[in-house]
Amino acid sequence: MRHRLFDKTSRTLIMGIPILWIVLFMLLPYGVLLTYSFWLKKYPLFVPAFQFGNYVTLFTDPQYMQVLLRTLKIAALVSGASLLLAYPFAYFIVFRLQSARWRTVLFMAVIAPLWVSYLLRAYVWKTILGTEGILNTALIGLGIVDAPVDAFLYSQFAMVITLTYIFIPFMVMPIYAALEKIPRNLDEASADLGMSAIQTFFRVTVPLSMPGIVAGFTMTFCLSFGDFIAPFLVGGPDGLMVANVITSQFGSALNWPLGSALAVVMLILVLAIISVSDWIEQSGQVEL
């Protein structure tokens, strides 16, 4: 009898604490966020209301659509660049590298920067790419260019480099995990059946590592999509992203309802991307 009571308490605690937390600090805030997004801005602050004006503004004012599309483009470029760097790397250390020790060392070396401050990793690119920055002054010192190249900093190019630098570990981790699960004898079987190494790569390895690619793409896309530090440091006016617009609505523009509506749009987009990636991952699942 006493046992059953204990079991019941422990079960209640195990289920209760997380559920309570989710309700209090996730569901409730999302609900409030949604509520706010229907409110009306009225000088000097805002008043409760139920109207879709904020959403209409977002989807009709070209200024917001432009930022949204730019953000999607940059997030896609960052994910693409990360994939191009991460895949060959993961492939090499899983399939080509003979030494297990080196495999661990190289894998750790790519993951380790995650532990180093994200702010600093963005900041250092500002110091490298700036007009008075290290790259420009070095190029001038070497006599390669006469005047500093402005194009490096405050451009979308700078944002893609910086965000790729920051988020690449999130691409390497799932791809590495997916490649590691592929049995080695599939390579041999494919070769025995007359496939070349390149055919084997595209028809066996890549399809089998698809879940890792999708997971990595989702992570890097969503994270760079919502970033506002890198745009602030290296983006310039041409590199403003959705998160910067949200920030300014909560700061100088003081239009919380509009900012909340933008945050809701971001939340829905992220949920949609996660659902699509889950669906792709599940439909492409192969039992090994």
């Binding site: 805030p29 999302y30 409030v32 966020l33 969503c222 994270l223 999509f225 919502g226 970033d227 506002f228 998160a243 949200i246 920030t247 909560f250 900012g259 909340s260 945050a263 971001m266 939340l267 992220v270």
Partner: peptide, 8 residues
């Protein structure tokens, strides 16, 4: 993105 958690 952390910004959504922060704002909500």
């Amino acid at each position: 993105p952390g910004i959504v958690t922060g704002i909500s």
